[in-house]
Design a protein around this nucleic acid. Sequence first.
DNA 1: TATTTTTATGAAATCGGTTGCTTAATGTTT
DNA 2: AAACATTAAGCAACCGATTTCATAAAAATA
Lengths: 344, 344
Amino acid sequence: MEKEITIYDIAKDVGVSPTTVSRALNHHPAVHEKTKKKIFDAVLKMGYQSNIFAANLRTKRTNNIGVIVPRLNSNFQSSVLAGMEKAANEAGLNLIISQSLESFEKEKANANTMFNSRVDGLLVSLASDTENIDHYKPFLRKGIPLLFFDRIAEQSGCTGIVIDNIQAALNATNHLIEQGCKRIVHVLGNIKINVYADRLKGYKYALLENEMLFDPSLIILSDLNEEAGEEIISKIMKLNPLPDGLFVSNDACAASCIRHLKLEGIRIPEDIAVVGFNNDVISRLVEPNITTVNYPGYEMGELAMKNLIKHLDKPNEGMLENTNKITLRSDLIIRKSSKKEISL
Amino acid sequence: MEKEITIYDIAKDVGVSPTTVSRALNHHPAVHEKTKKKIFDAVLKMGYQSNIFAANLRTKRTNNIGVIVPRLNSNFQSSVLAGMEKAANEAGLNLIISQSLESFEKEKANANTMFNSRVDGLLVSLASDTENIDHYKPFLRKGIPLLFFDRIAEQSGCTGIVIDNIQAALNATNHLIEQGCKRIVHVLGNIKINVYADRLKGYKYALLENEMLFDPSLIILSDLNEEAGEEIISKIMKLNPLPDGLFVSNDACAASCIRHLKLEGIRIPEDIAVVGFNNDVISRLVEPNITTVNYPGYEMGELAMKNLIKHLDKPNEGMLENTNKITLRSDLIIRKSSKKEISL
DNA sequence: TATTTTTATGAAATCGGTTGCTTAATGTTT
DNA sequence: AAACATTAAGCAACCGATTTCATAAAAATA
């Protein structure tokens, strides 16, 4: 238990007032260079460490940004976080991260903790369970910038950062149709999540554009994890006639599907062409490489954080009401798993 | 800008002193139940929110735990973080996370930020660049619990949580030898990191045990990412005679190697048996499934956090000096990529 | 009933920077 | 040289919860 050095100690040592020390440390212009130098020398000599609590208490700022994600251990989410961390770090901000584990209750609890921790801003990707966003009202009321990413709250009036899931799914489906697919199965996650709802829309639009009928029996709901492939494929194998295209809303799951399709003796892409989503590492490593939608997680995280930071300095502008939705570019990356022409 | 409600406002409303309000909120026994009830009613009615800065300023606790990892967007690390977050959340602690991006300088900067943010404890996995751990001395001096995980500082005297990398690599290599491999290539990362240094040891020990000679030309250094496979395989193809076993220190890289070996027309496991490391999702999805070492990231994170928490309440015990190393169990998971016998 | 113990509460100092206001010293203008 | 502007620095209040010490009221004991 060493005694803490305060600005008062520094002040006494240098022979100035605590005010001047405080000003010097914050590079206030009204401190003479010579005095400043003396103060910084003393700071170094005495091993002074600023007490952020005292500072926070006055300035009402923590320099902490809260982030709530559904899961930390997801390829996509951790890329987003990496991007956020970089941007935050560059701006001298800390990241407080928590996960909702897809539970509404836990998300509420986390939001509450964040609020009580007085984060300066909050970035959220919603849990699949989340039914309303009332738990973020305290932030809005207090004018704390709140921004959603990926899994956004459409109605909320808050800014959301997304990719155009409709367009991406449309492109993916169109690509399969171009490859000659007539019966395309679409595997997606919880439809309550905007992400999956939009992709389903995109899938339907593509059918419409090509004057193909939407067949509900070709839609398979799944939790899209790496084990889901077995069950999905067993469902697919029961379809009669078999589909010739498969659009899975997640690469890990697509990989799992491919694996189980191969076990059933089905050739990819000749019998069934497959498109995934995310451009995860795995899409480049399985055989055949998976055609997928590039989902720029790192960029999304960086952009979300930078956007939030922009709003930190002007509290009057409050809840990011000027821009309401930022859409990132995402392209279809065509690989072997879907290229029927070439393999014919 | 709504005015903040403080305990003074509550006190005035209820007709007691701020002292009593503070006591009531902290469930101090010396507050009459009736008074307490009145206070909590007022708290609810007035929408009071505790100001943690003021509390922190007095109690000198933040309830924040810092975590420094090399990269956020790594399968293993994000699992660790998920485990940590869970344990922290249960204990009412927040996680402040930053990444060193494998840079010594950035790690130092992050450690410094953490220190200035007055985290109550710190969990670190070292960057590959890190040459010394002097930047953690301020924590030790102040008695802030510091704990390393996975990439630990051997000499430091700080507790480290690891798996037995030597034993794991020994088992993996022995397994390949049992499958009849005579020339086993080992692909590893930066040898300065304890993790890879230990695995190399394990590999050598296995050779020794089986009276096989260590051949330095069979050791390949790599950054072990998903793109590294191509280069590694081009090196391997130049070996004469070709190896018959391959032990890669990371599943994503192993998958990449398998892919490129297959492109060269080499059969797995018949021509070359492959063992990976980590038990990443990918090891279960590529063809053939990869034999790998289970690396329990989630458990490691949970354990590390729980261990740290144990030391938070007894500041006298200081720097976790009683236990010096905690080793987690990790098993070899045998899959098709290495099973020569069965495929013969 | 008088005295001691227990219980419930409050006054005031404290934690350590920050900042509005004031003042002294120096520099500039006419 | 007088009047004004600028620069550098300090005083003291403040942020809001916590905590030590003191005290009034109630309960227990003699």
